[in-house]
Write a protein that binds this DNA or RNA. Structure first.
Lengths: 219, 219
DNA sequence: ATAAGGTTTAACCGATTGGTCAAAATTATA
DNA sequence: TATAATTTTGACCAATCGGTTAAACCTTAT
């Protein structure tokens, strides 16, 4: 009984993931999800009560899949260069299987902002601890007091944006899928190198508003 | 007659922009656009025939507004550092008035990929020329043969992603609107500096697949 | 064999949606 | 002033949508 029950529920989640990932909450149709799962539409409500709850289940899974391992990577003791390369490798592996995941997560923040809050509360990410860890690492490896939030934003930007913007960039440059994939593969080494070079030459910025507003610590 | 006609059409475009920017194609309602414009819903079809055509008109305007001046900036003879700062200043000014524009454009590529093609064909962007211009400039200013597409992707990533991901980052870090705005303002100088530092120390990558696949030119 | 519980289904519902239309109102022209 | 052209409107349409329900079916327990 348990096996059969989990079978249907997991089929629904897998189908919902496929449809929500490509079309977002508003664009997804419950009938399409049911068709994808090979079941009657009423079963969607039997197991998940509503479209919204089904979406939240899918979003939570996606966020965990993308950011869960990122936490381990960034809290490890590896050099920053290695961390970035590990994160990019992990991230691009996730993207290979779920190419819509970054757009899906960003889109979820726009379509259902209120509902996403509880998912982050459950994600156990401690951003301030992450910033402190990053700050200490930058000091040790690059002798710089740069605001770690900017560095972290730069790392995320360089890793995630080229994937999210893939349809746009491919259209502008008329690039085939496999050429763009090669470019993304190259970035596994390009991005860590770019960041390492930037940090090597970094000078302390004149002011540091993030520190002023969130944590009183200065050295 | 002409004045009155343009008045209604422009009211529709302004209202459509407001609604499409926030809710995307699927989430926007024609009745809501009509309400926003203060007119009867049938007029939307009288002037634009369909929801899709109205969306395309709005998308085209948005793309021109965001990337039109970027072309001038990047084809100018200014130093690269100044170009990036100008682009960021322009970009953040556009964002101040239309905060959803970057997401709207990226999202448009996912929601209506087919329809966006004609808009790029009309945009008169010559990406290969832009890449050559950038390559020459990097050689002259930084004595590097780095693939300009990577540099350009890096510039776009660092400029655009923090705006697109604003809801996500603010949620993760629990940042108030004005604190995040200050962070974005800081990036007007942080990003050009980060890029300049990275380029100063750049070493030529071992392989260069973009060149292999699109242009046979090597030095 | 029967009962209970869980799963599944076809049919249905009310609400919403993009789009249409004939007529009225307004504006422009002769 | 009369007519033509354009703009605007209220009413309406068919299709779609998320969700519900009673009944049938299947599995498990007694």
């Amino acid at each position: 009984m348990v096996n059969i029950q989990q079978g249907t529920e997991e089929k629904i989640l897998s189908a919902a993931k496929t449809v929500f990932h490509r079309k977002g909450y508003e664009g997804a149709r419950m009938q399409e999800i049911a068709d994808e799962a090979g079941i009657n539409k009423a079963l969607l409500h039997y197991y998940f009560r509503s479209k919204e709850r089904l979406f939240e289940a899918v979003f939570s899974d996606a966020f965990t899949q993308l950011m869960g391992q990122a936490k381990e990577i960034f809290f490890s003791e590896k050099p920053l260069n290695d961390k970035i390369q590990s994160f990019l490798t992990h991230y691009l592996d996730v993207i290979t299987e779920n190419s819509y995941i970054p757009w899906f997560i960003l889109n979820g923040m726009y379509e259902r902002p209120g509902q996403m809050k509880t998912i982050f509360e459950q994600s156990e990410i401690n951003p301030l601890q992450l910033m402190e860890h990053l700050r200490a690492q930058i000091r040790k490896e690059y002798h710089s007091d740069v605001n770690p939030l900017h560095v972290w934003l730069n790392i995320l930007s360089l890793c995630i944006f080229p994937v999210v913007a893939k349809p746009l960039i491919r259209e502008i440059f008329q690039l085939p899928e496999e050429v763009y994939q090669q470019i993304l593969d190259q970035r596994k080494t390009e991005v860590p190198r770019f960041i390492a070079n930037a940090l090597k030459a970094y000078e302390n910025p004149e002011e540091n508003i993030h520190n002023e507003s969130s944590r009183e610590e200065n050295s």
